[in-house]
Simulated assay, not measured.
Amino acid sequence: MKIIKDDLTGPEIKALLQAHLDDMYATSPPESVHALDIDALRQPEITFWTAWLEDDLAGCIALKTIESGHGEIKSMRTTENARGKGVASKLLAHLTSMAEENGLTRLSLETGTEAFFEPARNLYQRDGFVECEPFASYSLDPNSVFMTKLLTR
């Protein structure tokens, strides 16, 4: 598997991100969907990576710097064909390594409370994330779980 910094122009990533947004809106109330569309992911404070198995897109992940030393995980998604192959774990490890290299000391994320999000919550817990209060501009939401992890450099 290779992980590359992505410019968000390929048709494969456009399709994966649209599927991600479609699932978020099908699973959560609109006011509780915090997934970013492709244009929002092109902001300078966001770095976006894709994972590839041979020539097939396997997944994606983004890192948004929200304040000095603090980053947020956005747009974590794997393709149907890549599920169960360790792609999400490798993407998370890559993002964490890049965050540490760039001087971040804390990573946080928001995910859903619904059963659909249980695999994601389990992945983050296995990686050392713990539940926390809302951060950045988030507020309490019964459909959101907030998690954070301190990084060791």
Results as ranks from 00 to 15, higher is better:
Thr9Asn: 15
Ile13Thr: 15
Asn81Ile: 02
Leu57Met: 09
Thr111Lys: 07
Ala88Ile: 06
Met1Trp: 01
Glu12Arg: 14
Glu114Met: 10
Met1Asn: 07
Leu53Met: 11
Val130Asn: 07
Lys64Gly: 01
Ala99Asn: 06
Ala35Pro: 06
His94Lys: 09
Gly69His: 05
Lys64Glu: 13
Thr105Tyr: 08
Ser139Tyr: 09
Ile38Arg: 15
Thr78Tyr: 01
Gln125Ala: 15
Phe117Thr: 02
Asp56His: 12
Trp49Ala: 13
Ile61Trp: 00
His70Phe: 07
Leu95Ile: 06
Arg77Ser: 15
Arg77Tyr: 05
Ala26Val: 08
Thr113Asn: 02
Thr50Lys: 14
Asp127Tyr: 06
His94Pro: 08
Ser144His: 14
Thr79Asn: 11
Phe146Glu: 07
Lys74Tyr: 01
Ile66Phe: 10
Asn102Gly: 12
His34Tyr: 15
Ser139Leu: 08
Asp39Trp: 04
Ala40Ile: 01
Thr152Phe: 02
Phe135Pro: 00
Gly71Glu: 01
Asp56Gly: 00
Phe135Gln: 00
Trp52Cys: 04
Lys90Leu: 02
Ile3Asn: 12
Arg83Met: 06
Pro142His: 06
Ile38Tyr: 06
Glu12Phe: 13
Asp23Ile: 03
Asp23Glu: 14
Thr27Pro: 04
Ile73Asn: 00
Gly86His: 08
Ser97Gln: 14
Glu101Ala: 13
Ser89Leu: 11
Lys2Asn: 13
Lys74Phe: 02
Trp52Lys: 07
Leu8Phe: 15
Ala15Arg: 14
